[in-house]
Amino acid sequence: MKAYILEKNGGIKNVKQVQLNDLEATGSQVLIETKAIGINPADVQVRNSDFMLNMITGGHIPEQVILGWDVAGVVKQVGENVTAFKPGDEVFGLISMPGLGSTYATQVLATEDQLVLKPENIQFSEAGATPMAALTAWQAVVTKANVKQGERVLVHAASGGVGHFAVQFAKNLGAYVIGTSSAKNEDFVRSLGVDEFLDYTKAPFEEQLGKVDVVIDTINSVEHIRRSTKVIHLGGRLVYLQPHFAEALESSLLDARIAGFGVFVSSSAENLKEITSLLASGKVKTKVTQTFTFDELAEAQNVVESGRATGKIVVITE
């Protein structure tokens, strides 16, 4: 099989394509022939930072590090204890998060409790793009924020991977959703169904809107998240994607008298099944904006690392 090995933390030049032995499924494992791989900001963060690599693996870093957590493909083989899947099934999932999913490869091993069947109405590219971003958004909007019908919800970076799912999940729950982005992405954000679009380059977002009940802040900045506390009603909720910011945010949350929750996404077939039902019904759509070949994976990471990607970036393996 082909795979990308992280030789050391740092730039994309440290990710090398190599030829490895084929894998074999045993026990509760499912062997997947890869069709599509979602590329996420977490991939870049772990590639760049030995701190992030240590954190995500709990300090148990294998000698051979293969990045990637999103995968969609066809089941090639199952272990003797697997009952949910069989060879030929089309599946997708977020693999071993936290940990190493090792999905930057043409073959991937997963346990059956990390996978779901791909709906017939979505392509492999869409399925591969979905797991990490959608599960992060689900665990932010549904699990942590517990968004309710009629609440005002602000989603920052609504044009991004997590943001575009967060908008759709909040709308599906009956919320009034405000999405922030730059003006060039206004049409994209409005296509998601937002009730209001807010151009953050026009003026500070806190000067452009009234109070909201919930903020989903996807921006990797303590200062930005602190600014979000200023627009939330007393007793409201703030969800951010960097749990390690908790200590730095504690006083701001106390001053604003709101609840704050950090989300570190985790693999969950249970959550992914809920998301899959929305995809199958057409109530939620995965917006794939760029695709790359397996040999172009470095270019795909560069697009994500730029911070200017809209929707989802996907690598197709064939």
Rank of each mutant, 00 (worst) to 15 (best):
M1P: 12
K2G: 12
A3Y: 10
I5H: 12
I5N: 03
V15R: 07
K16T: 13
A25G: 08
Q29K: 11
L53C: 07
G58H: 03
H60C: 14
I61N: 02
V65Y: 07
V65N: 05
K76C: 03
Q77C: 02
K86E: 13
P87S: 01
V91G: 00
G93R: 04
G93P: 01
I95D: 06
L100M: 06
G101M: 03
Q107G: 10
L109V: 03
A110Q: 11
A110K: 02
A110T: 06
Q114E: 13
E120A: 12
I122M: 14
F124Y: 15
S125I: 05
L135T: 04
T136Q: 04
W138P: 07
V141I: 04
K144Q: 15
N146K: 14
K148L: 15
Q149W: 07
G150C: 06
G161S: 01
F165Y: 14
Q168L: 01
A170M: 08
A175H: 01
G193C: 05
T201Q: 13
A203I: 01
P204H: 03
E206D: 15
E207K: 13
Q208P: 10
V212S: 09
V215E: 05
D217H: 04
D217T: 03
N220L: 15
S221D: 15
H233V: 11
L234D: 12
R237Y: 04
L241P: 07
L249Q: 11
S252Y: 06
A256L: 05
G260F: 10
G260H: 05
V265N: 02
S267A: 08
N271C: 14
K273T: 14
A280W: 02
V284K: 07
T291Y: 11
F292H: 03
L297D: 10
L297A: 13
E305S: 14
R308Q: 15
V315P: 13
E318Q: 10
